[in-house]
Computed example of a mutant assay.
Amino acid sequence: MPGPLHGLRIIEFAGLGPGPFACMMLADHGATVIRIERPGGTQGGPESDTTTDILLRSRKRIAIDMKSASGIAVLRDLIATADGLVEGFRPGVMERLGLGPDDMLALNPKLVYGRMTGWGQTGPYAPMAGHDINYIALSGALHAFGRKGEKPTPPINMMGDFGGGAMMLAFGMVSALLHVQRGGDGTVIDAAMTDGSALLMSMIYSFHGQGWWQDERGVNMLDTGAHFYDVYETRDGKFISLGPIEPQFYAKMLALTGLADDPAMQPQNDTAKWDDMRDRLARVIALKTRGEWDAVMVGSDACYAPVLSLTEAPAHPHNRARETFLTAGGVKQPAPAPRYSTIATTQPEMADGHTHTREILAQLGYSETLIKETLAQGGVS
């Protein structure tokens, strides 16, 4: 069967990073996503970049001049027949174009209007420029990433852009689309990366409130404070990850590393001894290569995995068995996730560098004559 979002049409206004990722998720799961691009090339790079940009896979593309009357007319026709819309401009930009939520919901009362920004549509920071690092700084998330005694370390842009922004927007879109299908009205989604990254920290805020998570980096169980939840360097300069939190798994790790009889390694949760136990464990791990530790650990309950590079991960036997990565358009990329038992995700298709303008206009009901007239006016291409 086709994907769970099959039959839904989403209008995506071209942007960078998190917006395309949210729309990639919707397309991966069966929605028809029509990407509105600038004439002469998509936002974020020259036209040729679209053929290798994984985030732009599985889309229909049309270039529209949003400053032209003919372009706006086509855009309004698209939005009038759409189930959802996604935009990531600063607050007020869509309103100035005459495409704000009030106007578009008047045009299409069942529309789900998704807005994603860093600071949100309201609040004193809303008009300011920013990036992932700023948004997760304000939510308290960035403070938690890093080792003891060191400055905060940004987790690239996974926490704000993609976790707190794109995934929250995708979830919000699907939730609101379900609401509409059950008879509800269209709505506006205000997806702010500050809000989303704060929400992702819910467990840590809970632990802190309960009194057993210190408001300090690198001294807690999950932030590299614990010796049994950390990354270790091997003899060949590579790394492995260990995470045996439960006592039975910790015992298995000690047995496989030869430390089961070391009394200094027994008080697993004695935080005062974590640094000493980390040093002892690090010295043992450094005696073998990563491959040698694979031979010792894989198949056990020691909560172990090798730390793989971006080049290595697609070739790993587990990822190959699950087809976690695939190749489309000559580009190696992560496969759609999650999986379903009885319905299929969309087989990714990379952009070919061309728009689908005629096809899109025909689906709107434009006659061949009207398509030619519209193209001649120059508002779309």
Rank of each mutant, 00 (worst) to 15 (best):
D132K: 04
V33G: 06
A63S: 12
L105I: 08
H356V: 06
D190K: 06
Q377K: 15
G218P: 06
R278A: 09
G140P: 11
A80V: 07
Y229K: 10
E95F: 03
Q363A: 14
E323C: 11
H318N: 01
M104R: 00
L326V: 14
E373D: 15
D223W: 10
L259M: 10
K148P: 07
V74M: 05
Y135R: 06
A337E: 12
G71H: 03
H179G: 10
T50C: 10
G71A: 03
Q43T: 04
Q363H: 12
E150W: 13
T311A: 15
M203G: 01
A82S: 13
R59T: 08
P317I: 05
T345K: 14
G130Y: 07
G183W: 07
L177Q: 11
L310T: 08
M167A: 10
P152N: 12
H318D: 00
D275Y: 07
G258F: 07
L26G: 05
A82W: 01
D103H: 09
G120C: 10
T346Q: 11
P348I: 13
G184I: 09
E37P: 04
A272P: 01
G218Y: 08
L111N: 04
I62E: 00
A106E: 12
R38H: 00
A63I: 04
G365F: 01
G149L: 11
L199H: 15
A315H: 13
M277H: 10
N269I: 08
Q377N: 09
L75W: 04
A260E: 15
D276E: 15
L169V: 09
G84D: 08
G218H: 08
G365R: 04
G186Y: 02
D230I: 09
G291D: 12
V298F: 04
T117R: 06
R38C: 01
Q210S: 11
R339G: 11
S241C: 15
T357S: 12
N220E: 01
G243D: 05
V380M: 02
S70C: 08
P101R: 04
L361G: 00
R9S: 01
G258M: 03
A295L: 05
L222A: 02
I133G: 00
Y366N: 06
V33P: 02
A144Q: 15
I360E: 08
S202G: 11
G7A: 07
A286N: 02
L78A: 04
H227P: 11
I156A: 15
G88M: 14
D77R: 13
P247E: 04
A141F: 09
L107A: 03
A328S: 15
I54H: 13
A305F: 05
E368Y: 09
W212N: 13
L5P: 06
P247K: 05
L75S: 01
A344H: 14
V231Y: 15
V33T: 10
P348H: 13
V231P: 07
A264M: 12
D262F: 09
R96N: 03
L138A: 15
E216R: 10
P317F: 00
L97E: 02
G146I: 06
G164D: 00
R358C: 05
T122F: 00
G98I: 03
L326N: 05
P109E: 06
P154T: 07
I79M: 14
